[in-house]
Design a protein around this nucleic acid. Structure first.
Lengths: 234, 234
DNA sequence: ATGACTCCAAAGGTATGACTTATTCAAGGC
DNA sequence: GCCTTGAATAAGTCATACCTTTGGAGTCAT
């Protein structure tokens, strides 16, 4: 997944630094400085900057340098930007935004999936629901997390909307973050697991209403769980 | 908005060609070929390719060249990718995806805005609703479109979710596309305009439920209007 | 024929020096 | 005080040389 080459290394260093606010808005990066700082050639520096520019993290102007753009300009849907922000000081804000996005997208995705899921997807979904139930009881959070991510990714994919499908990585990141940071209970709440079963059943039964309601309960629940750890939910 | 410099010109040429499928999946671009074809230097070609690579439109490997990636790999949320796809043969699929995204996001955004909109935003929203009503009657589609875009952008911004706010460009593109291509009636449907007023009122009255319902009616209506023009909605 | 090994050429990756162009800022002229 | 002009600066572009990886042709032994 990581980008290769020297420009990739630059990117992996500058990107998080900017996304976390370590390099603040308005700061100016000069090519020559970066060359000497990282001991690489202009070629490499320029390519890294082009990528950051495509993400709208920076903008370069002649005679001025490459300036870090304000947050509002950032391409907040870029997978790398999301990851970098999750790794840094912006983590709470990013989790909150993603939580809101989940609340919006996942219920609709579940409803659409109820009309479109193939028999195979349906089987897979049911199997994952069973696995969730089992691993929730056994308390193996690692494995539980894996199945949880797979479950949500499958629903998003089964929705038939390519843009929804592309959110699965971001959703995965949120779920991972919850298990890592937040004090997830040793045994996931039984009612949440039941809701996952409900979603799977409703989709397989081609019942959009029920699928949407159950999924909405899951994601709003997750968002509320998250709120306290984010400080001012305001 | 357009990217400057020679690498920008390359990008503006290659991007749409790939996004539209004119350059098909699996096609190989060799740097040297591009250099001579566009009469530019290695530097320029490489920088353009780095950007396309960041969008996951292409991937380059040594000894092999830069190969166009399958659609599923593309970063479908990248604003440029969205625009390029809208300009080309992928237009119907892109409009459909964006329509689905609107159905998911905008109602939730409206509900959130009902709790967060400032007095100023509320005034602006009401004013836009009035403008929509007036211009709908007068039949000035150009002006109507502008206000429509501003209205939806404002709701998204007022939701307080930065990711929602960043979707306003995409939503604007969908609305513009409808006015351009589809045979929009000379006078926008009065009921749709009424729904916009309803959304504005509900948000100003801090009534999330009503705002969400009204907005949902707007976006599902728009999606259904769109369906026939997309051929097989399947 | 089949498999494994070697080696070469092709294509991207990196480094570097020279030159071009736009833009800021300040000095100088009105 | 305001406008013009010019010089300094940093990004943008080009050409070239060289490095590194790797696919595939060719070879050889089984």
């Amino acid at each position: 997944m990581e980008i290769q080459g020297l420009h990739g290394r630059l990117l992996a260093d500058l990107g998080p630094a900017i996304a976390s606010g370590e390099i603040p808005e308005g700061a100016v990066l000069r090519s020559e400085e970066l060359e000497s700082r990282y001991g690489v050639s202009r070629t490499v520096v320029r390519e890294a900057i082009r990528v950051l520019e495509a993400m709208r993290l920076v903008a370069s102007r002649r005679r001025v340098g490459t300036t870090v753009q304000p947050r509002e300009a950032w391409d907040v849907f870029d997978p790398l930007v999301i990851r970098w922000r999750l790794e840094g000081a912006d983590r709470p804000a990013q989790l909150s935004s993603l939580g809101g996005l989940r609340v919006a997208v996942e219920p609709v995705a579940a409803a659409m999936a109820a009309g479109l899921a193939t028999a195979d997807q349906c089987r897979e979904l049911s199997a994952l629901a069973v696995e969730l139930t089992v691993t929730a009881r056994s308390g193996d959070l690692e494995v539980f997390l894996g199945h949880d991510i797979a479950f949500h990714a499958l629903v998003l994919r089964a929705s038939g909307n390519e843009m929804f499908a592309h959110l699965s990585d971001a959703v995965g990141a949120v779920l991972t973050g919850r298990t890592e940071h937040k004090l997830m209970p040793h045994h996931p709440a039984p009612y949440a697991v039941a809701l996952h079963r409900e979603v799977a059943e409703a989709i397989c039964a081609q019942d959009p209403e029920r699928a949407e309601q159950a999924m909405r309960a899951i994601v709003t629940g997750a968002l509320e769980e998250l709120a306290p750890t984010l400080g001012a939910s305001k």
